[in-house]
Design a protein around this nucleic acid. Sequence first.
DNA 1: TTAAACTTTCAAAAATTATTGAAAATATAT
DNA 2: ATATATTTTCAATAATTTTTGAAAGTTTAA
Lengths: 168, 168
Amino acid sequence: MELAAAKLKFIETWGKLGSEWGINRTMAQVHALLLISHEALTTEEIMETLSISRGNANMNLRDLIGWGLVEKQHKAGERKEYFFADKDVWNIARQVAKERKKRELEPVLKVLAELSTVKGDEKDPDFKTFNKSVTDINKLANNVDKTLETMLKAEENWFWGSVLKVFK
Amino acid sequence: MELAAAKLKFIETWGKLGSEWGINRTMAQVHALLLISHEALTTEEIMETLSISRGNANMNLRDLIGWGLVEKQHKAGERKEYFFADKDVWNIARQVAKERKKRELEPVLKVLAELSTVKGDEKDPDFKTFNKSVTDINKLANNVDKTLETMLKAEENWFWGSVLKVFK
DNA sequence: TTAAACTTTCAAAAATTATTGAAAATATAT
DNA sequence: ATATATTTTCAATAATTTTTGAAAGTTTAA
């Protein structure tokens, strides 16, 4: 495959994966484009490459900055802004994990903790089932949360080196 | 909080979480409803409780069965079908991991493997960046894949017991 | 059989989410 | 200050996804 075709394929694949996981397809595509660009790009270049509008490019770039995946750069003597993506895949994974934990997991954890305290008739099979499911999900969610917490604190080479051994 | 209110809150929260992670909100709500029901429910009961149409209920129930999270049951002397959800949270987690791995991760792995083989000019910084990002993401995706594979084979009490120790 | 009970399908409608593009806002140079 | 370059906003529009509901299909009982 030619490099040009491969780049398009990568952008398309990354966008599709994003949309399957609840991330705006265009945001994932912009991220993909920046990931394979050795230099920072302008909004114009992104708009053109992905055939998207200025507003769309701007919004998704801001979101990517909000996710900690992209940063603005300025070039000396130039007025326009350039955008550059961190290429360290471990940083990216950590950043995504951190944000999703904060945005989506933690609010759920709060609700589950509250629902775990609901009292009811221990003889009522409906209460018992509710209680067991909520309690178990709460435990699992807390495990996931703590595991992510540990991951966020972990060293980079922990991940690349020892995940598999650890699980065997 | 009253049990009835708690049930609604659970269904709502589960639905929201699902939609944030690319899973149809109604499907997640049907699953939530079945998770907290001690007995199997009919399509009618699900339609009524969640205020959804017959077609919608039917489709999402079929999808849940396709995800391996719900099964049909028949009661002696009754003609209609009943639906029942596995309440074992570890099974649920495994099942979801298994399906998403198959549906979403594996196709991406294939593309990444292909893109990793693209040849180019080692002097071209654009090629170098493409190659590094794709190669690194490919490695990470393979690590995730193998980790999930291990998780799928693992014993139930491995999860509940030792995840945290393992990560420390 | 045939009719009633029940399930599935799917085109159309509704709801949701994403995108556009032009106007407003902001920043910079002269 | 004023003009120019650039970024941001956001109401309107478009695209996508979900839901509806009635018709078609299937199963079972008599």
